[in-house]
Amino acid sequence: MPIPTPTLYPPFNVLRLSHVVFGVTELARSRHFYVDTLGLQVTDEDDRRIYLRAMEERGHHCLVLEQSDTAAVQALSFKVFDEQELDKAHDWFKDQGHPVEWVERPYQGRTLRTLDCFDTPIEFYFRMERLAPIHQQYALYHGVKPLRIDHFNLFSANVDQAVEFYNRIGFRVTEYTEDEESGNLWAAWMHRKGGVHDIAFTNGEGPRLHHTAFWVPTPLNIIDLCDLMATTGYVGNIERGPGRHGISNAFFLYVLDPDGHRIEIYCSDYQTVDPDLEPIKWDLKDPQRQTLWGAPAPRSWFEHGSMFEGVATRVSQLKATPIVAP
Rank of each mutant, 00 (worst) to 15 (best):
L256A: 12
H245T: 06
A295L: 09
I265R: 00
G246F: 00
Y270S: 07
Y254P: 11
P287Q: 05
I263V: 14
R244A: 03
T272D: 06
E264V: 06
D283P: 03
F251D: 11
P279E: 01
H261R: 03
G246R: 04
G260H: 06
D286N: 14
L256R: 12
V255A: 09
D259K: 04
Y254V: 05
V255T: 07
G294I: 02
L253W: 03
W282M: 08
D274S: 13
G260I: 09
T291G: 05
V255W: 02
P275G: 09
H245S: 07
F252I: 13
I280P: 02
I263H: 01
Q290G: 14
C267V: 12
I263L: 12
D283V: 01
Y270G: 06
A250K: 08
Q290I: 09
Q290D: 15
G260K: 08
H245M: 09
T291F: 09
D276I: 08
T291A: 14
D276V: 01
K281E: 13
S268N: 15
D257K: 10
D286W: 05
P287Y: 02
E264D: 01
E278G: 04
I247D: 08
V273S: 13
H245P: 06
Y270N: 12
A295Q: 11
F252T: 03
S248N: 08
A295M: 11
D283S: 15
P296L: 05
K281R: 15
D274P: 10
L292V: 01
D283K: 14
E278Q: 13
L256H: 11
Y266S: 07
G294W: 00
P242L: 13
R262H: 06
Q290A: 11
D274A: 15
R289W: 12
I247L: 00
I280G: 07
P296N: 05
D283H: 09
K285V: 04
L277T: 11
D276R: 02
I280T: 13
C267K: 02
Y266K: 02
L292S: 10
Y270Q: 10
Y266L: 04
R262K: 13
Y266E: 03
Y270I: 10
E264K: 08
P242V: 11
W293M: 00
Q290K: 12
L292K: 14
E264R: 05
T272W: 04
I265N: 01
P287L: 11
A295D: 12
K281G: 07
G241W: 00
P296F: 05
S268L: 15
P296S: 05
G241N: 01
G246V: 00
A295H: 09
D276S: 09
S248A: 11
F251R: 12
P275N: 10
V273Q: 10
G246T: 00
D269S: 04
N249L: 12
